[in-house]
Design a binder for these strands. Structure first.
Length: 542
RNA sequence: CGGGUUGUAGCGCAGCUUGGUAGCGCGCCUCGUUCGGGACGAGGAGGUCGGGAGUUCAAAUCUCCCCAACCCGACCA
């Protein structure tokens, strides 16, 4: 791997072999659930993206350019639109279900490419799309992908689990992300150690202990000179503990000043807010914008009796009474706030970010938060794209209905990187046999006729038996060859040297265990081939 | 987009404060010795000092502008 440019890497021969092996495993498993391979263009006319509305909603992530005629063009970030245009030729439920896929370059103008292959601007993705006449069919295609993805990760040797996820800009109803724990990742996942609950922090919820607020009382404004923070109000005489306060955040949602209210000790999750409101451009309001809207500065803000701006409130605050919050008057707060009575709530939404140790909604166990790499994502899209692009079929009753679509993605390069994250030690990579650039290397201690002849014989025999094998006949010292083989991570090293050759023996070293055994050369290939075959197909079904 | 750091030989870096003929390690080439865990000796090749402008007798070094990469954050199927 060599970097050409931020987020763009040149793939050298060894890396490219791994890439192709990963792609082939993905290909096999998608074919196994009925997928058919296509290849769609990666350069698209703007018109198709405008039709779906994503020309605007995708924002700066999309590379846009003009051709010589001045026509707007985009580099594909994903292919829902393009597959939908092909699928518009479908006309009958008898042609369904369909699973179509391709492995194609995606371009995404990421704000900050990082971490080698984990986040790049140009990469290969397998994206498949399912087409069904009804939601039952969509469920089936979705579940089939769920199974296929788990098989893929098992074969790649990547530990994985599925989590509830935000659909983000993709839209649709349901989505599951596949995650592998790694410090190199970029997603926080809330996971229950006791049951199988897991959710992206952008979506996950938890159970909170009940809070007794006592009987509701009158709204009362009181002076709080100098109090500007939740913590300060906690220690202020006549204040309130954080879980009895309302935290009011002033946000700009697509240019509209909006008040967002969460409990004093809770953190707003921006993605939850984005999902709930459908807003594209979200940012905290500037201090002067806030003052113009509410007449107070941060630290004294509140949503009580605010009618001119939408107020969005976290669901856990429903029915809470005797709360304390800013009064939109510098140095004054309200106490005795009944949320339902005193706030004009436009929307009740789950907004708060789950914290480590909170109770699992299923079983009550303390939740943990794990850093993860997202290695796959599957979506139920519903009829959003099929309606836009006229992907309609006649159903069994003769009615013309929009097709139920699903969309399923795996980044090839990112999975390579995730496999390395899962399989390395202080000497280098420890490739799983299934995706190793070469499954075995024959290391010649000396490059003389006798050694070369013995090595070539083993090379030919292994090759004939279907093993990916490389012969290291460089004129280099033993230590150099050993260190390189370990760094690259070939699963098997066959060492041929004068010591062994004198006894008709070779050494077999397994990268994973690091252990070496002497094996008679005569039976070497017959002994090794079944072991390699089995390791290569580990996790593979029929 | 905000904050920080860095651009000098293929790779990793020093030199910049205090301007005066561009250096070190690894790698590379040649010869010799060595040769089962990253050898040693001798000789050698290799650089628009990120780009542009300025100051100066003189700029890798000082000033200004630009570009790029990396890290943190914002953002992100």
């Amino acid at each position: 791997m060599r970097q050409l440019h931020a987020g763009h890497y040149s793939m050298l021969p060894l890396g490219w072999r791994v890439h192709q092996k990963v792609a082939n495993i993905v290909r096999q498993e998608i074919e196994a659930i009925g997928g058919q391979e296509f290849l769609l263009p990666t350069m698209h006319p703007a018109s198709i993206w405008k039709e779906s509305g994503r020309w605007d909603t995708m924002g700066e992530i999309m590379f846009r350019l003009e051709d010589r005629k001045g026509a707007e063009t985009a580099l594909g970030i994903t292919h829902e639109e393009i597959f939908a245009t092909v699928a518009s030729e479908l006309s009958s439920y008898k042609q369904l279900p369909q699973i179509w896929y391709h492995i194609q370059t995606k371009f995404r103008d990421e704000a900050r490419p990082k971490s080698g292959l984990l986040r790049v601007r140009e990469f290969h993705m397998k994206d498949s799309y399912s087409f069904d006449v009804d939601t039952a069919g969509l469920d089936k295609a979705f579940d089939a992908h769920d199974v296929a993805y788990r098989r893929i990760f098992a074969r790649l040797g990547i530990p994985s689990f599925g989590v509830e996820a935000s659909n983000g800009a993709m839209g649709g109803t349901d989505s599951v992300e596949f995650m592998t724990p790694s410090d190199a990742g970029e997603d926080d996942v809330v996971r229950c150690p006791n049951c199988d609950y897991a959710g992206n922090i952008e979506k996950a919820t938890s159970t909170l202990p009940d809070i007794d607020d006592g009987p509701a009382s009158e709204l009362e404004k009181f002076a709080t000179p100098g109090v500007r923070t939740i913590a300060a109000l906690e220690s202020f005489d006549g204040g309130a503990s954080a879980d009895h306060q309302l935290k009011s955040l002033v946000m700009m949602l697509d240019g509209t000043i909006t008040l967002v209210v969460v409990r004093g000790d809770h953190q707003l999750n921006m993605q939850k807010l984005a999902d709930a409101t459908g807003a594209i451009d979200i940012r905290p309001a500037e201090v002067d914008e806030t003052f113009a809207a509410l007449g107070a500065h941060p630290g004294s803000l509140g949503a009580v009796n605010v009618a001119d701006h939408p107020v969005i409130v976290d669901v856990v605050l429903r029915d809470r009474v005797n709360m304390t919050t800013g009064a939109n008057d510098d140095d004054f707060h309200y106490r005795g706030v009944s949320v339902d009575r005193d706030l004009e709530v436009a929307q009740w939404v789950d907004l708060r970010e789950v914290r480590e140790g909170e109770a699992c909604v299923n079983c009550g166990a303390a939740l943990e938060i794990v850093r993860c790499i997202e290695i796959g994502h599957i979506f139920k899209l519903g009829t959003k794209f099929s309606e836009t692009f006229g992907v309609n079929v006649s159903n069994a009753d003769g009615d013309v209905v929009p097709v139920e679509m699903g969309s399923y993605g795996i980044g090839i390069g990112r999975n390579m990187a995730a496999a390395v994250e899962a399989h390395h030690d202080d000497k280098g990579i420890v490739w799983p046999v299934a995706i190793a650039p070469y499954e075995a290397v024959i290391t010649l201690m000396r490059v003389d006729d006798e050694t070369l002849e013995a090595g070539t014989k083993i090379y030919d025999d292994l090759k004939r038996a279907g093993v990916d094998v490389l012969i290291d006949d460089r004129d280099a010292r033993a230590g150099v060859k050993f260190a390189d083989a370990e760094l690259i991570g070939f699963p098997y090293r066959i060492t041929l040297g004068p010591r062994g050759l004198a006894n008709g023996e070779a050494e077999v070293t397994r990268r994973q265990s690091g252990e070496t055994e002497n094996v008679p050369i005569a039976g070497l290939v017959d002994a090794l081939v079944p072991e390699i075959n089995e390791a290569r197909d580990a996790g593979r079904h029929g």
